[in-house]
Amino acid sequence: MKTLQLKIKSKTDKLYFVRDFVSDAARNFGFDEEAVSKIALAVDEACTNIIKHSYNYAPNKELDVRIITNEKVFEVVITHQGKLFDPSAIHAPNMQEYLSSYRRGGLGMHLMKLLMDKVDYKILPNQTCEVHLVKLITKKNEN
């Protein structure tokens, strides 16, 4: 098992660094460019949601991004101390209805689920929240 870690402040101008950090790690792990892009976008969406909804754009908070790799599993764990979040309250949007009613926003989690193999939310006993994003390497997305 191998772990990489990046700590960022809760500011949207840090998203670029997170994407770079995750893309490099995914590429080194052996994913092709299409899979690398999907992982980077999913992590961007997760961090954006935390900055926006959990920290309400407070710029001095922290996000901890850890990448844990093990054989065929590439897992990104994003930890924060912001507002607790109930993922079960969010339902996948009906995209046809969404588009025809010109809605805006609320697609981040839906995208994460489409892009990754597994998305999970955990609340630790010390009220720390974790978002787990898992992508498995297969012959199809291997470089």
Partner: peptide
């Protein structure tokens, strides 16, 4: 080079 859902949201805000 890149777009996230925040970018898509801008187009949704004005298309109607």
């Amino acid at each position: 080079s890149y777009i996230s859902s925040a970018g898509l949201g801008v187009f949704m805000a004005y298309i109607e």
